[in-house]
Design a binder for these strands. Structure first.
Lengths: 108, 108
DNA sequence: TCTTTATTTAACTAGTTGGTTGAATATCTC
DNA sequence: GAGATATTCAACCAACTAGTTAAATAAAGA
């Protein structure tokens, strides 16, 4: 088993262009494996694996109906990743702002 | 060489808890390899490699002064990752909002 | 110049990733 | 029930990751 940490898994899941494409496509709404694999030059089994990585990371949810598996996005984990980045990005932005403010001080 | 895509590299770089710790520590300001490695139960060579991964992803900058290498955060690439996530998170939030609005409609 | 300090590089290893193909499972349709 | 459809599972492989230790490089200090 690879990493167990939710942030590890989410960032890892997003570190692949095929998986980011799948996430992007799922913003159009619920889709099946076949739908998602459309136009991707890769075996269905490989796409299925990518989907499983996203699912394990908690980025999407599977609904099985008959022989078809339907997937849709789940926002919570994306939010966790966003929050992590935001903390440090905001820190940095504040730093730059402080520097700018400082430079604008009268020379005195 | 692994992936060449900037987003791949940034998300991959953040998918490791040691590297996220390094980023977190660098919000305290510029630090050397030795500083950064403090308290991390890992060889200096390993920490040095983690730093290189972050550097290659464009998340930090190296300034060599004498025998010491100083590192500091660079915000641009973090922003790229943040933007990617935001696009889809905002999409999702809007969806939920639309649903909520719909449920609040008078029944007519 | 010799030694210590700061860091990287090289060679190696175990485990993981991302793909393949072929078989298995489950469901739908005739 | 037989065949087609949708998808996963298993076994395999090449490439990459994340660590190790030992040696190399470079600069500082005595």
């Amino acid at each position: 088993m690879p990493s167990n940490d939710p942030l590890d898994r989410v960032f890892m899941a997003l570190a692949d262009p095929t998986r980011r494409l799948l996430v992007q496509r799922l913003t159009q709404g619920e889709q099946s494996v076949g739908d998602l694999a459309q136009g991707i030059d890769m075996s269905l089994a490989a796409v299925s694996k990518h989907i499983k990585v996203l699912e394990t990371a908690g980025l999407l949810r599977r609904r099985v109906a008959g022989r078809t598996h339907w997937f849709s996005l789940v926002p919570e984990q994306l939010t966790g990743a966003l929050d992590w980045i935001s903390i440090y990005r905001n820190f940095w932005r504040n730093r730059l702002q402080a520097l700018a403010d400082d430079l604008n001080q009268p020379e005195d």
